[in-house]
Every structure is written in C-alpha cells, then in structure tokens.
Design a protein around this nucleic acid. Sequence first.
DNA 1: CTTAAATTCAATCTTTAGATTTAGAACTTA
DNA 2: TAAGTTCTAAATCTAAAGATTGAATTTAAG
Lengths: 236, 236
Amino acid sequence: MRRADFKRKSRVIVVDDNYDHASGIRELINLEQDYEVIANAGNVNVAISLIKKYQPDIVLMDINMPEIDGITAISEIEKLGLKTKIIALTGYDDADLIYRAMKIGAKGYILKTMASAQLIRALDEVTMGKIYLPSVLCSKFFEYFQAAQRNEKAYNAADDEENLLNYLTNREEEVLGLLTEGITYKGVAQQLFISETTVKTHVNNIFQKLQVNDRTQAVLYAINKGFGARKKAKIA
Amino acid sequence: MRRADFKRKSRVIVVDDNYDHASGIRELINLEQDYEVIANAGNVNVAISLIKKYQPDIVLMDINMPEIDGITAISEIEKLGLKTKIIALTGYDDADLIYRAMKIGAKGYILKTMASAQLIRALDEVTMGKIYLPSVLCSKFFEYFQAAQRNEKAYNAADDEENLLNYLTNREEEVLGLLTEGITYKGVAQQLFISETTVKTHVNNIFQKLQVNDRTQAVLYAINKGFGARKKAKIA
DNA sequence: CTTAAATTCAATCTTTAGATTTAGAACTTA
DNA sequence: TAAGTTCTAAATCTAAAGATTGAATTTAAG
C-alpha cells in the first residue's frame, strides 16, 4: 500500500541528540523511494526552527533528549498548527510516556529497538492520515489510559455510595441544572414556566437533600460530583 | 502463544440480542480447546445476572442492543468489580463508540465483520492481560481521543488570551478562593481578619472585573477558567 | 381504592447579598 | 512630592435569597 511513484516524496525531519542514531535513521529512510530526510536536528530549539522553515510532512522525534524533552517539543510543535505529523521515538515502552505523547497529538510511537520495517510502516500509515501504534505499545497506552479514567471517576464521584444527587427528583435536577448556570430564582421560574415561589420550594428541598445552606454550595457540590458532566462530555 | 493444555478452559459469556449470531460465536469458540462458552444472554439484565452468578473470565458484549445499550452494560459490569474482562463487539467502527467502550474499561474491541481468527486472537490477548484493539480500530480511537484532548484544552483555558482572572489583585484572588468554597461574607471576613464591609467591597470589585452579577456566576467563571485547577489536577 | 411521592403555589418573614458613595492609610512609581 | 493602586472600612439602600408553614393537584405504587 505504498503511494504511487509519481507523487512527490514525503519530507522527513529527524530529531535526535545522538548523531549516530540520527544518521542511521536517515540512511534507512533514504533507501525508500517514498521518503527523504531533509534535515537532522540535535536539539529541540534547532528542530523547531527547521520545522517552521521547511514544514515537513513528518517529524521523527526522540523523546529522551537533554534540556527540553521530546514531550514538550511535541507540544510546542503542535501549537504551530502545521500539517506536520509527529512520530515519537524512544528506547523504552514506558506507559506514561506513550500516554502523554499520544495525548498531545503524536501520530505514532515506535521503539528504537524495533525492526526497520516497522519504522517504514509507521511512516506509511501516518502519511495516509492514520495513527500508528504497534499492538504492544497500544496495550501499554490503554493500561495507563484506563487507570487514569478510573482515577478520574473515583475522584469525581464515589459513584453511587454517597452521592446525594441521587436523591433529587427530576424537577429538582432541572432546577439545579439552571442554578449551575448562575441563574436567579426569577430566571429559573421563567425558563421552567412555573412561579418563583415554586422554584424556591424546589431549591429549599435541594438544599435539604444536598445538606448545604446556599446555592453556591449546592452548585459546588453538583460540579464536584460530576453533575455538569453532560456539557463537558459532548466535546465532539 | 496459546495457554498450556493442563490449564482449565477460560469461561466465556456471550451477550447478543441476535440469537443466531450468538450461536455462531458460541460454536466458533467451542471449537477452541482453551475456551468454552458457558452461557448466552439476549439482553443486558439477563447478562448481568449471569455474570454475577458465574463470574466468567471473559464477556463478549454486543454494543447494539435494544433497551439498555452495550456501553451502559459494560459500565454496570465494571462496577461489580470482578476480574471479568469485557470485549466489545459491533458491526460498525464508530470512533465515538470505540472511545467510550475503551474509556469505561473494555479490554478489547472487535468488529463482527472481522475474521474468526481475530476473535480468537482477541480472546488470547485479553486472557493474557493485554488489550486487544486491531490497528484500524486503534487508529479510530485515537482520532477521537486526540480531538477530545484538543477540545478540552480549548475549553478549559483560552489559556492566556482572555482570562479575566488575571486582572484580580492578590487580595481579590484570596476572596474569590473562599467564595469558591461556598463561604459567606461573614465567614470570609472572619478568615481574613477584615470587616464584612471590606469583603463586600472586594467582592463587588471582583464582579466588575469578571463581568458577572453574583457570586454563583463568579464561582462558575473561576472554575471554568481553571481557578480551582490545583485540587483537580492531582488525579494521577 | 388508598397511600405516598412529586409538583405546584401562596404568604410571611428574616437574613444575605449586592450596589453605591465616600474616604483614610499604606505602598509604589513617575 | 504627586499620582496611582491596593487594602481597608462605614453607611445606606434595594433586591434577592432563604426558611417556614400550609395546601391543592397529579401520578405512581401497593
């Protein structure tokens, strides 16, 4: 599934503080008809200048580098908003590193110890707009990802056990929802087409159930228990 | 890399509302010496009862089901806190579904259209404690994941550009900090050893600067702009 | 059919909250 | 030294918030 010969070669920049290693990669890639290494960079600052200047199709970024690390570098490059795709490169299959690299936008992640065929395959996949993550690393990523999700949940909720929000009725939830948008009694009454005194009744019941004394505390309780999750959830 | 013969077979429960399909999977799996299907379930409620009862090693969960969907089901099963590992199963490679399934703890995700060899491989990998996500689906996942990360960033911050919190003085930040804990004027005054009227002055200035009308809105603004980030940040 | 819960509303009352104006003291900077 | 900012504070006033009691209606559950 290589790109056809009449298309121009994809331009690659290699970022690695180890010159020998960078050269090795360069030669390896230049053997391929679809790719050409247009520059090497030994540190992050040089890399960013080169990337700004040449806007390469792909950057191969070593993660373990002195001074500024590769993760920060990826983040900086992503901020430039170019079409350049970044593939991370390290010696270790550290779950945390993989997670962070992918989180900030790396399009692939490969180990230096992996066969050269994998490197080329990564270039191919990423060039086609896909993500390349070997199954071993994919597995590592999800280890970390799912652990992070579990923590997030444990933090937000204590899901059913002591979530006083579960005692609210439907209407009370509606009212609380509007409170969490900073709306007054009058405003809530208008939006729900009910009288202001009714709103007050609901709000008082909410306070009782949530064991708080005023709306600010109620709103804070709601947010901390993940009440506003809906809005944050519909990010796509 | 199959498990040795002397080990007991892994026990599998198949959840699918389509009986024919469930039977197909059952026969397929029962051909393998390492696995046995101990039950089928046509809907989520039955599935959960069976899982509680038999505590299988693996659950194959169809995502597209009537009434309660598979995603919710996975979430419920995860709440049980068993060692049971869940592999999601659908007809479509929808990025959103894959993301949600993996987020809540599925250990694998495969398409019904995929070859039976993939199903067995998924069982093998997951049994060994790894994640199984075919590269096509892995790529889909990251599409969604990275988009979500980008939105999260854009949502939380507008990082430096228009954060009205930057205009607050030190004292005002202190006061706002107490407001975000749901404390009254009187309480703030006591904690800061100043008079209540002084607190009111500060709060009014805060409202001006944040362009809001009351404390609830001020607190919401602060939280949305990451004012309380300290506490939430330390999830890992 | 009866009970219980949910939703609605009124009236009354007390307490905060919030707006506005004015101003002194401390500290910084031109 | 003068001007500006920050922090402090009081006085006054209006508007909102919150507590409490009591009650009618609807709907779900037993």
